[in-house]
Design a protein around this nucleic acid. Structure first.
Lengths: 358, 358
DNA sequence: CCGGTTTCAGAAACCGATTTCAGAAACCGG
DNA sequence: CCGGTTTCTGAAATCGGTTTCTGAAACCGG
């Protein structure tokens, strides 16, 4: 690889001058010299060594992103981040913590060693002391879809309250009273607390008593959600609708319902969270709260980059992105009893019977 | 941030010595000095600046990964890569080319500037001259699931031939003769050519004439596959089975079949490619060729890291990973005519009618 | 006690860029 | 023609580490 000295030698000038043209600092530079140097750069196909530049300039033009777990949802977020980074000449260092706080810490400190200019964090453990450290070092970082509840930090989140309310009002509007909610156990994460609060608020607002036994914290391991779903469906006071809070829980519930021999939406309604290209192709097409993941990625990167480039810090900002309920076919009117009452239920009954064949 | 000089000053030694303990080069070092320095490092919570280290050592311990398009499949690959990188102390710089050759080139050269130690590439454009350049610069890189067909390069691929044959033999075994295959148009990519060759070979081997009109190259834009599917189903000589070569095509075909008012697997069989957690929850549960994506990621990273750390280069290697057909419910025995013949078909007819209700 | 080896630690060069500073040349008004 | 600007360029310091080289001290056998 050619260095700046090679270019300087070839052009017969000093490397200071070469550096000037690299940085387009043409003030007080003769046209002739500029030409000469540009030609030498061309001829040698010279590309400056970013590592050396970073060392001197004290910026790497790289941002780090550390995800709790790279699920399909984050795929789109990542694309959004990349989009905005490209526009601003930043690179991305990626890491996945596989839901482990230890990995997360390790990832963060690794990225810090690499001198990334800032961090986008979807944390497993919002109360880690590492965030206090980052803060006291004035290291730029922003949370995405997760944040400590005590110390306010820059954060980009989907408005969990709005999304949950929309879903709940829809279900209640369909006549559901016994609505179970499925959550992941990660502590104090906004995603969890806000959605749970909104769930409760919605019930209260509609005069429906809160049944704690319908609030299900699932371990994030395969099968746990399926089990819990089956248990719920075996109870005499089974719920008539499920609201899940992420795609895996949704799939688990779908599986659980199927294993219980019930059919959605005739026997039970399901509203999911997050929307993917394939959500309409699920069985049945999923009614779900769609979060604009790509947009979130873009906004997060934008916020972080602004934060990096601003010398003095602004008070923490919270940027919200609006989810939207996509109504498809996995939620239907509640079925009051075994005996069909209205036309809608009759219709459902017919479907039910026919589906039993398969 | 504390520097090595701060540590040296605090410990009352020279920075050479500090550097020695950082690199665990304890030869000829007194125990006392070692202790002193380690303590100073502790007290200052000192972390060496990787940028400076990289400059001198001429290695960044970062690898770059450039993906044609970050789909759910790559999610698992990425996790595998990360896993292996963690084990070896490497970081990952990520970029997505959004299916554009220009973006790809830009991504590659950006990563090269950043001095990443090596590159994992899933290319949009295998014939780009940029790969010749990389090669002539002896820049370590390995292809994943894509490779130029002319110049042999280090590559990790799923064995496309085996996967396709397994799927085709299964379909043929179910009595299908008119099997349509759906492909993406990217030129000369192994994924495409090998799968297509295997498709043809399988037909020939079984004495089935190749009908070029059943070989469908879909543009990678939403709806194109749906359209093509509908067109195929409107033909009098409609195919009885579809074999797709990636998840999006699978979804498009599923949608197309549904829009044509047909039911899988009664009217038509579908075998997909790639398997996800949610594949069993599709409508119907998808029979598909599963590629061990995580394992591919691990093996690719392993190969690249070996290549980076080996001084002299070995001849290009091709590592294959074995796909496996997962049989679920989206493919069934072929239905010979409109008039039902056997019990199976009768049964299917009943289902068909009942589903028409919804 | 002496010369030679071994053990230990620091000074200085270096990696490849940027930036400051200072000096040379050109220009310019009086 | 002369002193003072202005325009242009290069030498040298710097970023934060690693590594080479050299020298001092300790050790050791005779």
């Amino acid at each position: 690889m050619a260095t700046i000295d090679d270019v300087a030698k070839r052009a017969g000038v000093s490397k200071s001058s070469v550096s000037r043209v690299l940085n387009e600092n043409y003030e007080y530079m003769s046209e002739e010299m500029k030409q000469k140097i540009q030609q030498a750069i061309q001829e040698l196909n010279y590309k400056p060594n970013s590592v050396a530049q970073s060392l001197k300039k004290k910026e790497t033009r790289i941002i780090g992103i550390v995800l709790a777990d790279l699920s399909p949802f984050w795929t789109d977020v990542l694309k959004g981040v990349q989009d905005e980074c490209m526009r601003n000449g930043y690179g991305i260092m990626f890491s996945d913590s596989a839901m482990s706080p230890e990995n997360e810490e390790e990832n963060i400190s690794r990225l810090q060693n690499k001198q990334v200019d800032g961090l986008i964090i979807n944390t497993v453990n919002p109360h880690s002391r590492i965030f206090d450290e980052l803060k006291s070092e004035k290291y730029p970082f922003v949370f995405i879809n997760s944040t400590p509840d005590v110390i306010k930090e820059d954060t980009v989140v989907a408005n969990n309250t709005a999304g949950t309310i929309e879903a709940m009002e829809y279900l209640i509007g369909l006549g559901h009273r016994r609505i179970a909610i499925f959550l992941y156990p990660v502590e104090n994460i906004l995603v969890r607390t806000e959605r749970l609060e909104a769930y409760k608020a919605c019930l209260e607002k509609n005069g429906i008593p809160i049944d704690e036994s319908l609030i299900k914290i699932c371990r994030p391991e395969k099968g746990n959600g399926v089990e819990i779903t089956r248990d719920l469906l075996n109870r005499p006071d089974q719920p008539t609708a499920f609201l899940t809070t992420n795609i895996y829980l949704t799939l688990e519930v779908l599986k659980g319902v199927r294993q219980a021999g019930l059919v959605i939406p005739m026997d039970i309604s399901v509203v999911g969270y997050d929307d993917f290209e394939w959500s309409p192709l699920l069985d049945p097409p999923l009614t779900t709260v769609a979060v604009p993941a790509f947009e979130m990625g873009v906004k997060t990167a934008e916020l972080l980059i602004k934060k990096i480039q601003r010398k003095r810090q602004k008070p923490p900002q919270r940027i919200e992105v609006m989810p939207k309920l996509i109504i498809r076919e996995s939620a239907g009117r509640v079925r009051r009893s075994a005996a069909a009452l209205g036309l809608g239920d009759e219709n459902l009954d017919t479907q039910r019977k026919s589906l039993d064949i398969s």
